[in-house]
Design a protein around this nucleic acid. Structure first.
Length: 673
RNA sequence: GCCAACGUAGCACAGCUGGUAGUGCUUCGGAUUUGUAAUCCGACGGUCGGGGGUUCGAGUCCCUCCGUUGGCUCCA
């Protein structure tokens, strides 16, 4: 007999060799929702036999761990279906992910949505067969011969599996896969799967290795849960900023202008202006100085900063001076040679700036600086240009020209900790006042194995420590991520998710010992000696474009009153109220409120329908009654109404709501109380 | 940049296996003067992403370029 500790702390005796699944049934009953077991804190299959004393608890399919197991098993089912339908295809890897699972296949070409349907049908068929999923241990050499036709699996076996210990396979029907598990015990648990998309991937994520076909899917424990997941995905698509940007006329991207180059239309520009004003207020309060610098600079500037050699491939090509070109032409330089010179950087010219720091550095060094000048905080809404890969460009979140709410702080060594803290507090304040609380903080450190970083390790250590210290004092969860540093220094990033689950870096604070060194920056200390300042780069929004994109999705286009492109839409019920409506319009405008009027001859129902799509904070409905007593009828976004509001009263309430930057319009009491 | 899918009026979409384009909304013009999510009638609007090819004939088939979407890779 063995003694097994149960979740409630009690201890039961079982015969040696009893399976984990049998104990779960014993303690949870037949109708439990577990799909695997946690034995001494380790995830195990139901079939796993227990031979020593241990503790056990069930893993519910509704827990995160349970869902991962379910997704992992669904990935196997996908691979089984593919193998049966396309015997030449070679399964490689297929892990569970936060939103479902995927599996990568080699030698599966021309796979489209028709094929996807076929495979999904096959998966349902296999699920219905109720195939038992069995774990079998094998030695390394046995595994090698089992997967002799699959070089990808062989590579994994060779790399990860010791000859002595061997590893396991999981089999279902005739099919089997190399896997550590655990898995659900039967394919019947995988009835509710849905394949969502086909895309591609590289073997081992390496561009130079084989291209694989990746198939994504979703799985849920029940039919209803699957339905709900599909519905929430559909719902999320409606708040995609690319769709809303078009519907609400916020921005436009024109292929004649260029990929990833944003044209801000009046409504979107209004939002951006409001945000810039909002940041500017904070800048003034925190002792920043705003500066302006041009969009281009000499190539040499970026050689000194290191950006030109390091980020060559992701910059617009240099702008070469006319004289230089004709001189080269006279010398008989061919196009090919010219292109080589450009690539090697052996050419004079200008660059569209990929960063604002060099320009700000030159402002710093334009004067002799003393310790009394520090910290010197230079801020600019600076527009930069980067040659992002064409396949990466997307909406407002990944673009080729964008404006950073950038600033560079020149500080003494002992001011670093305090100033970094000030920066991340600013980011936090700004995020919170916009109601964006769902972010994570990432401290990007250098990767010890990589040589891509510049500067000596002593300074890196100090900068990394400063970042860790600042992050811990923030009071939110943060993670250290080696390899995520910038090439010149460590950084603290604020990362958020968009509606389709992709993560984007927004706010960032970076400590930099490197650029001051490269540009030989100095200040005179109180000791009369010359010292080197340290730089801090920071941008609370990151990029105005990306931030606005995320913000559009965050609010689903329904902006708080202070950010709403049009705050008030005035709708007249008939032509009789046109004059009154225009009076109100001009009064609102005088008060600095963004208002529009629709005094056309459509019915009020139609006007509401048409204007709703712009999500103004409020609509004012004007009929005979309002004209008679000089009032307005206020309509909220959800259709709730507040009739007979005296105009001046409304304006003062509205102005207060705007000045307070309330996160939701709330001048109309909700019907639901 | 790589893989796959896609690109028809301002927007959302239809157009079967090749026979020179349709619907709804928007817009505009009339009628109506309307009380909180669809009043009626009429009109305008497209060299079907660009270019090339096959064919008697291409929105439809082929090639190529551009762009979009989903991933991969990259991200100062």
């Amino acid at each position: 007999m063995i003694s097994v500790t149960l979740p409630d702390g009690s201890v039961n005796e079982y015969t040696v060799g009893i399976t984990a699944g049998e104990i779960i049934i014993d303690i949870e009953g037949r109708k439990h929702d577990c799909i695997a077991a946690l034995v001494d804190g380790e995830e195990k299959d139901f079939s796993s036999e227990l031979v020593t004393d241990c503790s056990i608890e069930g893993i519910s399919v509704y827990s995160d761990a349970g869902m991962y197991i379910l997704r992992h098993s669904a990935a196997h089912l996908l691979a089984q279906a593919i193998t049966e339908l396309y015997p030449d295809a070679k399964p490689t890897i297929g892990p569970p992910i936060d939103r479902g699972f995927y599996y990568d296949f080699a030698d599966l070409e021309d796979f489209g949505s028709d094929e996807l349907k076929k495979v999904q049908k096959k998966m349902h068929e296999l699920a219905r067969k109720n195939l038992q999923i069995i774990r079998i241990e094998h030695t390394e050499s046995e595994l090698s011969s089992m997967f002799e036709n699959n070089p990808y699996k062989l590579e994994i076996i060779k790399e990860r599996i010791d000859e002595g210990t061997g590893s396991t396979i999981y089999s279902q029907g005739d099919w089997f896969d190399l896997c550590k598990g655990p898995h659900v015990h039967s394919t019947a648990k995988l009835m509710h799967v849905r394949l969502t998309s086909v895309s591609s991937a590289f073997w081992r994520g390496d561009q130079n290795r084989d291209k694989l076909t990746r198939i994504y899917g979703l799985v849920e424990p029940t039919k209803d849960a699957l339905k709900a997941t599909m519905a929430s995905i559909e719902e999320a698509k409606k708040r995609d900023h690319r769709k809303l940007g078009k519907d609400l006329q916020l921005f436009h991207v024109d292929e004649d202008v260029g990929q990833g180059l944003i044209l801000w239309t009046p409504r979107g520009a209004t939002i951006r202006t409001c945000l810039q004003n909002f940041i500017s207020e904070h800048l003034t309060r925190q002792g920043y100085h705003q500066v302006y610098t041009p969009h281009i600079g000499k190539l040499d500037l970026y050689r000194t900063s290191g950006h030109f050699p390091y980020y060559q491939d992701s910059q617009y090509p240099p702008l070469v001076e006319k004289e230089m070109m004709s001189k080269l032409a006279h010398e008989g330089c061919s196009c090919g040679e010219l292109s080589n010179m450009m690539a090697a950087g052996d050419i004079e010219g200008y660059m569209l700036k990929p960063m604002n720091c060099p320009h700000h550095i030159k402002i710093y060094s334009s004067q002799a600086r003393s310790y009394r000048d520090l910290p010197l905080r230079l801020a600019e809404f600076g527009t930069v240009y980067r040659w992002e890969q064409s396949g990466e460009i997307s909406g407002l979140t990944r673009v080729r020209g964008f404006t950073q709410d950038d600033a560079h702080l020149f500080v003494t060594e002992d001011q670093i900790a305090n100033e970094v803290l000030g920066c991340i507090e600013l980011v936090q304040v700004i995020f919170e006042s916009l109601g964006m609380t769902d972010y994570r903080v990432r401290v990007g450190l250098r990767d010890p194995d990589s040589s891509k970083y510049v500067g000596d390790s002593d300074k890196w250590d100090r900068a990394e420590d400063a970042c860790r210290a600042a992050a811990s004092s923030l009071g939110v969860k943060w993670s250290e991520e080696p390899g995520e540093a910038a090439f010149y220094g460590p950084k603290i990033d604020f990362v958020v998710r968009d509606v389709i689950g992709r993560e984007w870096q927004l706010g960032t604070v970076q400590v930099d010992y490197n650029l001051p060194e490269r540009f030989e920056l100095k200040y005179k200390g109180s000791d009369g000696e010359m010292h080197r300042p340290v730089m801090i780069h920071r941008a609370p929004f990151g990029s105005m474009e990306r931030f606005c994109g995320v913000l559009i999705e965050h609010f689903a286009g329904k902006f708080p009153t202070w950010l709403s492109p049009t705050q008030i839409h005035i709708l007249t019920i008939s032509q009789k109220q046109v004059e009154y409506g225009r009076e109100i319009l001009s009064k609102l405008k005088q008060e600095g409120i963004r208002a529009e009027i629709d005094d056309g001859d459509n019915t009020i129902g139609k006007k509401i329908r048409m204007h709703r799509k712009f999500h103004p904070a409020y609509m004012l409905i004007l009929g005979e009654e309002e004209v008679a007593n000089g009032s307005v009828s206020v309509r909220a976004r959800n259709g709730d109404q507040r009739a007979g509001v005296e105009l001046n009263q409304f304006i003062s309430e509205l102005t207060e709501e705007i000045n307070n930057k309330n996160s939701t319009p709330s001048l109309v009491p909700s019907r639901e109380g």
